[in-house]
Each structure stands twice: as C-alpha cells, then as structure tokens.
Computed example of a mutant assay.
Amino acid sequence: MRTSRGGVVLKRFQLAVVAKEKEYTRRLADYIRGSAFGERWQVAAFTHPGACKQYAKQGYAIDLIAAESELLRELRPELSAVPSVALVSKPGEGGGDAELMQFQALPVLLKGLAEQFGRLSGRMGDSPPRSEGAGTRIVTIHSATGGVGKTTLALHLSNAAAARGQKTFYLNMERWDTSGLWLHALEPAGELGDGLSELLYELKTGEPDSTKWIAGRRRYHPLLKCDYIAGFRNAEDRLSLEADDAIAIVEAIAGGGQYDLVIVDLDENMTELHAALLAYADRNLWVVNDEPSCAAKQSSLLRFGQQKWGERFSAIMARSLIVRNRSEGNREKAQTAFGVAHAPVPLPDAPEWRRGEHHPLLSSSSYRAAVDQLYTYALGEREAAHAVG
C-alpha cells in the first residue's frame, strides 16, 4: 500500500507490535495511526505471540516486529527472518537483540523504531519523517551544571541561524526560566499573553490545530530575529511536566513545517523528560567550562545516563557535542574525560558580562563570531549572510 506525501509516492511498511497489556498495544496503535509515523507504517497489534504467528501464516507481510523480550523469543522460530526489536524495561533484557525502552515518550519510541528498522534492514532511506515539518531540525542546549551559559548560547545560536535565513524558534524548557530578562526587555510590562502553560492545556484537551494556535501567539524578537512564546505561567506547570508533554510541545512547534530549526534550552537536570528530548533532537550541545566541579558533574551525568538508558543514551551521545565556554584549559583532557565529540570552537570569555550587571543581547562581537563558527561546525550550514560584529 502506498501513500502520497508532498507529491512523492511512498511505500508503507507493516509493523507488528506484540505486548501483553492490551491497553499498551491499543494506545500505541492509536497514536501511530494519528501521527506522521502512520503515513509510512501500518500497525498490527497483538497481545499473544500465537496471534502474530497466525497473522504471518495467513500471508500478511511484516516488515518489523517490536515485541516484549519474552514474547519475542517465542516468535523467533517462525519469524526469525523478520527484523525485530525487543521492547525492554531496562537495558540488557533483550539478550543481545536490538532493544528499545518500552515505556518512554511515544514519539521517541517511534523514532527509535524507524532508526532500528533502517539499521536492521539496510533501508535507511525508508525511515519515516519525524513530523509534518520533516525539514525542521531540533537542537538542544544542555549541561550538567547551572550557570555555565546555556541560555546565552541558545539565544546567540538562534541569531546565528537567523543570519543564514533560517526560520528559527527558541523554546525555553528550564524549570526556572530566566530568558525573559533578554526576550521581554523590549516588550511592555504585562503584555506577554498566552505561553507554554496554555499551549500544554490546548494539547491535553485535543486542540485540533496547534500550528494555528502557535501562529496566533508566537512573538518575533526583532534583535534575535527568531520566534518564541512566553514560558510557563507558573512553576508548577513546568515542574509537573512529563516527557510525553515535552515532546508534544516540541512536535506542535516543529510539526507545522513553519520552522527550519527549533532550539530547545534545557536546565541542568537529567530525568526521563531530558532523556526524551535529547533522544528526539538531531543535535545536542553540552556546555561546560574549565571548573573542576563542572567537569566532574558532566562526567557523572554521562555515567548516569549510560547506566540508566544504555544503548538509548549511547545514541544520544553520538549526536552530541561538548562545547567549552570561557575555556582556557586542556581540551584533550576534556575529550578523554567526557567520551563525547568535542566542538573545536571554544566560546570566549566576555569580561563585560562578568561585572554583575545584566548584559544586553549580542553585545560581545567575539562571542557572536565564535557562536557563528560553532553553528557552521555543528549544523553544517553555509556562512552567515552578513558579517558578525
């Protein structure tokens, strides 16, 4: 069966999901049918391996099996030739099979299934688009330590993208959002309007057109030349945010195809929410400095991530870069300690920003130039359309 997307005829593949809980298979199947993943995949859900075997015996093709590890072993004798992924509750349960965490944000799970299908079948070009905005790239800015300059980098990176004609959206997902010090400086007090709290409410209550909702409430920053919306109206909305909700917010922004780039500014924690967003992103930039405590915390975060999420976190690390801010130390030592690719563009210290005063946006020409080079290296973009300075 084929479907047309953007004038291109695409083959649809068959996914068989095998899990004991009927509610899990129902929820996953319903989500797939209503998502962009469903444009490329049909799904058949089973709660017993015998039913899946019978389905195959009746002549129905199966391109990929996603099954709980115990059930996958029962499927093996008859369906060993079909690419398969074990759905596990903790790393290592797959017994050597390709595996994905069963209970995680559904968009992240589907992205993982598409990647595994490409790897197992050798059909990388057949991986389905992430969303309607298939050309939209997601970049996260993260660190194990607070106060290392994540938000400053994220805002400058947004500007660097705009200088290349990229339609960019800046999204702050920190628990304690301070980006308003810069973003709202040009706005009249009390006129922020609807923001992430209201968007989350709309998504949870089934807003039929989130793209239209965002278009009516987004703001354009004339200096950064990027869009954004106001943050969470109260801290409780952010503190209670779950991984699925965070992914839904990013999808709502990226899914309309209005943006080339979404830059997600994260806080320094490492929860399932953070792991989901890092796994969902195309590129992760981890900001560090030369303080010994910063290096120790970053190393601890990476060890924790590998222990908790295993292969899933290894995939995150493969799409990540260490970015050194205010750095004068030994880069080679840092590379060995972190085990993550290192961006060869350090961000310079801006003495004018360290006087205890609130600094204006884009006020350091040396920092802007370094971020411009970092953007070119990290995202492979052409040079900016105008000089930085």
Rank of each mutant, 00 (worst) to 15 (best):
M1H: 11
V9E: 09
V9R: 07
V9P: 02
L10I: 13
F13V: 08
K22A: 13
Y24I: 14
R27S: 11
I32C: 06
R33W: 01
S35R: 04
E39D: 14
Q42Y: 13
Q42N: 06
A44L: 02
A45H: 01
A45F: 04
A51F: 03
Y55V: 00
Q58K: 13
D63N: 13
A67S: 04
E68V: 03
E70S: 09
L71K: 00
R76S: 02
V82H: 08
K90D: 05
G95A: 07
D97L: 11
A98W: 07
M101T: 05
Q102A: 15
P107F: 01
K111Y: 11
L120D: 07
G122D: 06
R123Q: 14
G125V: 05
P129L: 09
S131Y: 02
S131K: 03
G135A: 12
G135S: 10
R137D: 11
T140Y: 00
I141N: 04
L153G: 03
H156T: 15
S158C: 15
A161T: 09
A161K: 04
R164K: 13
G165R: 14
L171E: 01
R175Q: 14
R175S: 06
T178A: 09
L183C: 12
P188E: 07
A189T: 11
E191S: 12
L196G: 00
L199E: 15
Y201P: 02
Y201F: 14
E202V: 08
E202W: 07
T205C: 06
D209E: 05
T211Q: 04
K212I: 05
W213Q: 12
W213V: 10
R217I: 10
Y220P: 01
L223P: 02
L223Y: 05
I229C: 01
A235I: 05
D237Y: 03
D237Q: 06
R238G: 11
L239E: 13
L241V: 06
E251F: 03
A254N: 06
G257R: 03
D260C: 08
L261I: 14
L261N: 03
I263V: 15
V264L: 03
D267Q: 07
L273H: 04
H274F: 03
L278W: 11
D282R: 04
V287Y: 00
N289T: 08
P292Q: 02
S293G: 11
C294L: 08
S300D: 08
L301W: 01
L302N: 08
R303C: 13
G305Y: 00
G310H: 08
R312W: 13
F313I: 01
F313H: 05
F313N: 01
F313T: 02
M317W: 12
M317C: 10
R324F: 03
R326H: 14
R326Q: 12
Q335C: 02
A337D: 09
F338L: 15
V340N: 03
P344F: 12
D349K: 09
E352N: 07
H359Y: 10
H359M: 10
L362M: 12
L362Y: 07
S363Q: 11
S364V: 08
S365A: 14
A370I: 01
V371C: 06
L374D: 02
Y375K: 08
Y375A: 14
T376R: 15
T376K: 12
Y377V: 12
A384V: 13
A384T: 15
H386C: 10
